[in-house]
């Protein structure tokens, strides 16, 4: 009996530790955790009328998936930063992929084409009217960013940076995570609070 309870005393904390490590949910995402394999969004059509799969970007070092939309003023404020990111990191093998899952007024495919042309997006802007991709990623707002590493595991998720007003940004979360990943390191900050407009999920 004594040995049995001793064993329990010894083993139980270990079991609990393993359980707690394996099952800790992400702080701001109830669906996906850092280190999880990126969900496959299947084939989504972009504003350039091309179809894009996650596997199409096999040659890229990192992928930055941004759930965004045409109408959320916060998301719109980040469009310029997404373009700059693609431009600055293009040569380093970083690929921005924007996905819009909102289907309310101003977010249809035609309106997306107009926006992509107006702003001269230098990255694919995909339309997912099924909204499945955002559900699988656990995206809750626009903009909501997921940096995928070379193995296409989530390496960082959350906000693009820490201020909607670009002139007031102090922490460039996504750029910092990318720099660290390209250096072969694990990002110091792997998750931050996403903020913006709630994604308008269907019934």
């Amino acid at each position: 009996m004594a040995t049995k309870s001793n064993l329990l005393v010894r083993v139980l904390p270990a079991v609990m530790l393993v359980l707690s490590v394996c099952c800790v949910a992400a702080e701001y995402n109830t669906t996906l955790d850092v280190g999880d394999a990126a969900p496959d969004w299947g084939a989504l059509v972009g504003t350039d009328e091309e179809t894009y799969r996650l596997s199409d970007f096999g040659d890229k070092e990192l992928i930055v998936v941004v759930f965004t939309c045409n109408t959320c003023p916060v998301a719109v404020d980040y469009e310029g930063r997404m373009i700059a990111l693609q431009k600055d990191y293009n040569a380093k093998g970083v690929q921005v992929v924007a996905i819009n899952v909102n289907t309310n007024d101003g977010n249809d495919y035609e309106a997306m084409k107009v926006r992509a042309a107006e702003k001269q997006f230098n990255f694919p802007y995909l339309y997912d009217e099924t909204q499945q991709s955002a559900r699988d990623f656990g995206a809750t707002v626009t903009p909501h960013v997921f940096v995928l590493d070379k193995d296409r595991k989530v390496a960082y998720m959350g906000a693009f940076d820490d201020h909607r007003d670009e002139s007031k940004v102090e922490n460039h979360h996504v750029r910092t995570a990318i720099d660290q990943l390209l250096d072969g390191k694990t990002p110091q900050v792997t998750e931050t609070r996403q903020f913006g407009c709630g994604i308008k999920y269907h019934d």
């Binding site: 701001y28 916060v74 809750t140 707002v141 906000a159 940076d161 820490d162 201020h163 909607r164 007003d165 007031k168 922490n171 931050t192 609070r193 996403q194 903020f195 913006g196 407009c197 709630g198 994604i199």
Partner: peptide, 18 residues
């Protein structure tokens, strides 16, 4: 803190409306 991440963090919210 305006509409910064810190403001959302402070009130413990992410999306609007809330």
């Amino acid at each position: 803190h305006g509409d910064s991440q810190q403001a959302f963090e402070e009130f413990d919210i992410s999306a609007l409306p809330h």
